[in-house]
Amino acid sequence: MKFGIHSEQYQNNFSKEETQKFTEVFGELTQEFAEKLNTGVPSSDESVQVLVRRHYEFCLQFWTPTKEAYKSLAMTYILPSPYRDAYEEVAEGLGKYHYDAVCIWADKNL
């Protein structure tokens, strides 16, 4: 599983260890989303919405997205992009599932 595809485009002051930890946490979150998808839990389910909250809090380490910006980030999970391809490698339909969950959460919380 390869995440952080465009990370080389951005300057940061994170150590190699911090970057590795970010990758691990993001991978764990992604696997949790995939498990929910694969067991048929709707993206609107409270347990999935808790995962979105954790995803949003993860993003806060790097930037503070508005509702529109957060939903736009999630859109990269469904539009043709390396992000979508990475999600689809984990589970078919995962990008759309995560996008739908983000939109629900963002509309209620941002």
Rank of each mutant, 00 (worst) to 15 (best):
Q49W: 00
T76V: 06
V102F: 07
D100G: 06
E46C: 05
V25R: 03
D85I: 06
S43P: 03
L73Q: 08
P80Q: 08
V48S: 04
V48A: 00
F33S: 01
L73H: 08
C103F: 09
P80T: 05
H55F: 14
C103R: 07
D100Y: 02
Q20H: 05
S44A: 14
H98L: 14
A101T: 12
L73F: 08
E32W: 04
E68A: 15
N38Y: 02
T64M: 13
Y77V: 02
K71A: 10
K36T: 04
Q49H: 01
S72P: 01
W63L: 13
T76C: 04
A69H: 07
N38G: 13
T30Q: 07
S81D: 13
F58Q: 01
L29F: 12
Q61P: 02
P42M: 00
E18M: 07
N12W: 09
Q61Y: 08
E92Y: 03
T64S: 15
E92L: 12
Q61I: 08
L51N: 04
N12L: 06
L37E: 01
T76G: 06
V102L: 04
V25Y: 03
W105T: 15
K96W: 02
E46I: 09
A74K: 03
F33K: 03
P82D: 15
Y97H: 09
A34G: 10
Y87K: 03
D85Y: 08
Q61T: 15
V25D: 05
L94T: 03
G93M: 10
S47P: 08
P65T: 11
S47L: 01
K67D: 12
Q20M: 04
T23I: 07
R53T: 11
